[in-house]
Design a protein around this nucleic acid. Sequence first.
DNA 1: TATGAATGAGCCTTCATTCAT
DNA 2: AATGAATGAAGGCTCATTCAT
Lengths: 218, 218, 218, 218
Amino acid sequence: MQVNRGPAADDEDRRERDRATFTNAARRAQIVDAAIETIADLGYAGASFARIADRAGLSSTRLISYHFAGKDDLTAEVLRMIQARFADVVRPKVAAQTTARGTLNAFLDANIEFLRTNRSHLVSMVEIARSASLVRRIAPADRGRTGADLAGLEQLLREGQRSGEFGEFDPAVLAVFVLSLRNAVVDAYARRPDLDLDAYARELRQLVNRATAGPATR
Amino acid sequence: MQVNRGPAADDEDRRERDRATFTNAARRAQIVDAAIETIADLGYAGASFARIADRAGLSSTRLISYHFAGKDDLTAEVLRMIQARFADVVRPKVAAQTTARGTLNAFLDANIEFLRTNRSHLVSMVEIARSASLVRRIAPADRGRTGADLAGLEQLLREGQRSGEFGEFDPAVLAVFVLSLRNAVVDAYARRPDLDLDAYARELRQLVNRATAGPATR
Amino acid sequence: MQVNRGPAADDEDRRERDRATFTNAARRAQIVDAAIETIADLGYAGASFARIADRAGLSSTRLISYHFAGKDDLTAEVLRMIQARFADVVRPKVAAQTTARGTLNAFLDANIEFLRTNRSHLVSMVEIARSASLVRRIAPADRGRTGADLAGLEQLLREGQRSGEFGEFDPAVLAVFVLSLRNAVVDAYARRPDLDLDAYARELRQLVNRATAGPATR
Amino acid sequence: MQVNRGPAADDEDRRERDRATFTNAARRAQIVDAAIETIADLGYAGASFARIADRAGLSSTRLISYHFAGKDDLTAEVLRMIQARFADVVRPKVAAQTTARGTLNAFLDANIEFLRTNRSHLVSMVEIARSASLVRRIAPADRGRTGADLAGLEQLLREGQRSGEFGEFDPAVLAVFVLSLRNAVVDAYARRPDLDLDAYARELRQLVNRATAGPATR
DNA sequence: TATGAATGAGCCTTCATTCAT
DNA sequence: AATGAATGAAGGCTCATTCAT
């Protein structure tokens, strides 16, 4: 039941009104950003409203409840925000490609670049995705959001096979694997910010390319 | 004033006294097993003492606090138990191998087998490792335990390169990647127990072998 | 410093200014109506500003606070509104009667009719009266309002006795009882809108007439 | 989900273990009694854990959560306790009767007596029944508990009609009315402890007897 | 070896209301 | 005439842990 009634009120009018007002949007963004940092730092379970409010410099957690319908709503918004920024980086790089392999490599590179410039974003995303997989409380819509990469990747792999660029493998499984490798880099970087990201990027590229290599390439 | 510490009291006398008594060990094992199941089911964050006690059929969480110094201690014991059973499966398979590639494949196969027969164990292990990576509360000693596989794997990869069986790659990074792929299989299986584990096993083997392939193989 | 008090500010100028402006009155009525529905639906305790605003289609509870000095003020207005509409139905019916018994039956019938046509109004009224009896937060003036029926009824019973139409009973107590029977019908109808209201009406009439029957009648 | 794990743990073993230990039972009873007083005083909505703990002289509300699975559980226990004590008073009086009218009057008298000696109990019961009717959160089992009187009363009325002791009326409806009259007495007494309970008792008896009077009686 | 009893801190959410345009 | 923004207090509940047998 949806009650007292910050601007988070309804799904329909939120779009219209909420985003409209400047202060409101700014506050929301401020909270979302603080949430992203906090999740990246302490994990999803550790990111309590109190901790988020703390980081955002808010006087009370009430302000979060005011701007978001609940923790799930905040999480969904966090995911939306991350995905949007992520797409800004990834999409242009990917769109510029004509071959499946080019697209695949562009995707990997874009991930690394996004990780480098927006570390907490990608760390948060991975962390949320993980928690969401066990705790089933995320809305179907946002669950889809989490899985968007996966579906797209699988399709890309399938196309590469059809065009003869890629070799033999199970596209559904390999998509899972490729994402898990991406996540491994994110994890490692989350744990040690002084990580040699370039080395990981190189190995990631090499590994994925070997995994997808066609007969000709080998 | 020093009151009721339970057998978990000190690290030194624990060894001596605890292990000695039979009932005690049985209770501990019962709790650890319940913890493993609970973690596999609800995640590390979801595995509260209450939930573990529930599954173990204990009337109060007090019994857990009695047998373990705290949640970290229980977690450490869980890890120890899993690792022990894991080693029982993996070590003989690995020991029978003479080549680096043989060892690597044996390791992968053993993992899959262990996952198939002890699903909750491996799921728990991965879950704990992940949580521990963000929340830094695990004792250094046990952190090492989590990383045992990693170190061994890296060494194996390095040896394979030295012997010429394996191609070029960064052994430290690839070790991380290989484990992350293993974990991906575990994750997928945790989410959907009806998973086609064989398909994942095949792809895992293929992927890892391609990643380590030497010039001759290619 | 005196800031933004809204039209509800003082008791004196409210009358003058408020009622004057048309929009204002319309808004107030809209809120009061939403409050009535909400109370009837969720009970007095469940009728939070948020829920009322929801039903009224308001974007924030602020509008309620703006038009009413507080929850008690809104409740009082709700009561006033209900009572006014109730009087519109009851008074003419009652006024047309010449005997005490006729008046009594007309009162009962009018209650049933009002319940049938304005279910939420009577349900709300009963609900508020009940809550107000335990939680003493209603202004004395409005407490009287709740008891208006009671006093009138008692007087009617007394007159019927004096005229010889009614038998022997304690008029003060019977007034309480008659209203409680009326409330029982309201309660039952509130719980099950598919109630056979006619059956209840018949029984109510019969019961009250037997209770007040004079020696001759028996 | 049922977690941490006071003695309230499961429904099955609660019976066995809980009640067994003396201290535990005493605490539970203490809390239940405080809850009864609080509900009678402030209404169901006003009876927060904090207020109950206050009245019971507990240091924190946590003790309530420890002994009861939640507010619903406490409420159910309150109902159970009241009903038990109520039955102790009513049942023997009712059982001693041979006629339907005798039973009916005994029931009414017993209610008045119980109200006189255990005011807060009956007040609480009525208050809970009311809240439960609007807020649908009470377990079906306890909902039945609330309605037990009603069903029994209806049956009694029906029997009295069959035996010719009672006149014509709708037994289901009259049962509702009779209970509502009882509740009216309770309400009145709750509001004014200095009430002339005898007068109310007399009128209640008279009213109900007139309502059920057979042709011969009239 | 086991437990019953209790606890302080923290969780998210909801409450009516106020400050400032 | 209306709103956007914010708030302190309280709500029930769950956490791992401790005191006392």
